[in-house]
Amino acid sequence: MDDAFLSVRDLHVRFRTEDGTVHAVDGLSFDVPRGRTLGIVGESGSGKSATGLAVLGLHDPRTTTVTGSVRLGGQEITGAPEPVLEKLRGNTVAMVFQDSLTALSPYHTVGHQIAEPFRKHTGASRREARQRAVDMLGKVGIPHPALRVDDYPHQFSGGMRQRAMIAMALVCDPQLLIADEPTTALDVTVQAQILDLLKDLQQQTGTAIVLITHDLGVVARTADDVLVMYAGRAAERGTVRDVLRTPRHPYTWGLLGSMPRLWTPVDQPLTPVPGAPPSLLTPPPGCPFHPRCAHTERVGGDRCRTERPELPPGRGAACHLGEERTR
């Protein structure tokens, strides 16, 4: 994948906290080519958001250390000076956040918040930017956009706010969009509409998308490729088709087992992966998943406990189980 627009290599994100250093992202590598969608899935705390923020260089350097390489169209992000990052953010790469009520400013109109980055990055006039905001609101399916452009976020419904945030992210036609759980706060119907909207817009503009979610259903619906994260590391990677049909990592097996399906009886509890994710303050040695893994006996010796499994490039899983991987 030489033509990847986003290329992440050996990314580490460490938070310094009072209790010690939280190693939230631990040697992550992945690529996203133009026009494709990569779904990043994993449980809460697996480092998905930390990865997304690192791509925009948004981590606070006073408390966070980011190492490794993040390249956007060949330009290195990690360690880049703030003015360089400011020119990229909202322009080349944009982000959509989960909770649209807190992620939009309550003190400015929706139109202003959409127009603002457009003015900054294109030098457009106030009127042009306002017109652009109206156009963008229309594009993301807000009815009567010219009337709603001067509304404040609290006057929008949750679904409309999320659409407005997408409009804001896409106002400068970014080449990469990071969507961090863009639909988690929404009900199922609205969720489907928003995901379809993202797909439509991607087809028009060829934007690369990183879709962060803990819902494999969302990935199945929207993404082309998947990266399964566990405790800050990549557990498995491949196309959506491959990973969902023939998952190779025991953690993915668990995730797939816990996916609600239409034919699951409502009263039947989902089968989540038993156990809890490890502490990122003191990660376990070897494979981070081994304390919860039911298959360590099938691997020879003590390897799962002592040796860190590597994720091969391309399709693959970071697991010591050999070729006889079956559920």
């Binding site: 948004l58 703030e82 990055h121």
Partner: peptide, 26 residues
């Protein structure tokens, strides 16, 4: 530390704009 201030940064707003127009407003 508010989400909407982070959003403003994610849009590429400069430090001063973020500080005064977003954070101070709140």
């Amino acid at each position: 530390a508010e989400d909407h201030v982070r959003t403003a940064r994610a849009k590429g707003m400069g430090r001063r704009t973020v500080f005064f127009r977003y954070a101070f407003r709140g």
